[in-house]
């Protein structure tokens, strides 16, 4: 069978579908001071997965606020800098009006994902971190 680390080179999704791959990618991103990119990406996925039925409205609002505050509010943060102003305004509006929808972070997540696919992921595949692991 194909070793996992070769699969990681196939696509960003293959990498993010494997726990060891995620850990290695996180180590690499932390060295580059952009570990928040990955945490934000997973936070968006986790937020979308919250079931409206089994999760209290209050909890969803609190979580949406926490994601907004930690990653988007500070315009100098690594995540915030990669998200389009219109996308940030949309999320801010959702939080302020308390209109909390499962897909409210989807666009922001896509923007961060594109950035990782075009930038940090190919750099990771050429990094010492990855090459030493393989």
């Amino acid at each position: 069978p194909t070793p996992p680390y070769l699969k990681w080179a196939e696509s960003l999704h293959s990498l993010l579908d494997d726990q060891d791959g995620i850990n290695l990618f996180r180590t690499f991103l932390q060295q580059e001071n952009c570990g928040d990119l990955l945490d934000f990406w997973f936070a968006c996925s986790g937020f979308r997965k919250l079931e409206p039925s089994d999760s209290k409205v209050e909890k969803r609002l609190k979580l949406a606020k926490a994601i907004y505050k930690k990653y988007i509010l500070d315009n100098n943060g690594i995540v915030s800098r990669q998200i389009k102003p219109a996308t940030k305004s949309f999320i801010k509006d959702c939080v302020l009006r308390q209109q909390i929808e499962p897909d409210m972070f989807d666009q922001a997540q896509m923007e961060i994902q594109s950035m990782m696919e075009d930038n940090t992921y190919p750099v990771f595949l050429k990094s010492d971190t990855y090459l030493e692991y393989t």
């Binding site: 494997d18 997973f42 968006c44 609190k62 979580l63 994601i67 930690k70």
Partner: peptide, 20 residues
């Protein structure tokens, strides 16, 4: 009551793939 950080961590962990 969960702190915001705990809530965030729980959310991030929930999206991670399970160990194969």
């Amino acid at each position: 009551i969960d702190s915001e950080d705990d809530l965030l961590q729980e959310c991030i962990s929930s999206a991670m793939p399970k160990k194969k």
